[in-house]
Design a protein around this nucleic acid. Sequence first.
DNA 1: CACACGTGGCG
DNA 2: TCGCCAAGTGT
Length: 361
Amino acid sequence: MDASSDTSRDAIAGLLLDWYDIHARELPWRARPGQAAPDPYRVWLSEVMLQQTTVAAVKDYFARFTARWPSVEALAGAADEEVMGAWAGLGYYARARNLLACAREVAGRGGRFPDTEEGLRALPGLGAYTAAAVAAIAFGRHAVVVDANVERVVSRLFTIEAPLPGSRPTIRAHAATITPERRAGDFAQAMMDLGATICTPRAPRCLLCPLAAQCRARRSGDPARLPAKAAKKARPSRRGRAFWIARETPAGEEVWLVRRPGSGMLGGMRALPDDGWAARADGSGTAPLPGPWEGAGRVEHGFTHFALELELSIYLGREFEELAEGSGAGEWWPLERLDEAGLPTLFAKAARLALAESEDA
DNA sequence: CACACGTGGCG
DNA sequence: TCGCCAAGTGT
């Protein structure tokens, strides 16, 4: 076999690890080069935050979380609302709910994470990818780590033409073929670094790629066409209303916030009251009080599976007691500390709009 | 298996 | 401007 295009496990892993030893990104959750194994808590936390989320978006959250909760026991001891609030803005809030459930489970076993892929896989919020990643990176296990980067790199290396997601089993089989016995954690991170910086979705930088000579897609002339993907469905639009109810108190102005149900859209997060747009094709339009209401404008927000046009209404009445007694599922929140309320981005946008309106008035 | 589930950045 | 995309998981 021609050595320059040897696609054996050792050849590809060796080339990639050599490249990684020089070009690894320095990231806050990684051990410094030459340092002892990284803290499983930090590896786990970073992996959960990085699910479907960019490195750039995660960095600040990771720093805040680890400063506030330096260990899994500390995190396990936090109140739900503290953690949900700290996660606000990062998205996919089920991750934060599972994060806490997982932390408490691990704290219950003495603060030690399971050190096998199978044991990790049983924890809340750890699926096939994260269990393999933590097992390999934190515990040095031989685990086959497959994320979107690996899917792209492997699809190109072996010219896997079938579209995702159907091609996943084939991709995994090929990934297993090139994953080394030793340094599986470094290998996984090397694949992800390669996918993030060289083997990018569009315009891959093949001239810089340590695996260029092994890559069948490069030889084919158009590596960017892979991986093929199934056509996506159109994203529908939805409408809803949210309600800004503010009152004056001796201590200052306050706004009425609710806690959303523990599952579903923005589940478990603090929010403005709304008309139920999340649970139906469009909101009911129904307000929590008879009114009068004044329109404050609209907020547009894109979710994964629909776009939302949210109309914001400001309450002009004074029957605040009805509200507090009526639902009970809310709280008056000081406007001064609104940025600490932990509102998800949609409602943070709506709040900005309301505050801009009240400044005009 | 298909779908629900956030958000921000980039070409 | 807008669709694509990011270290996926749970149901």
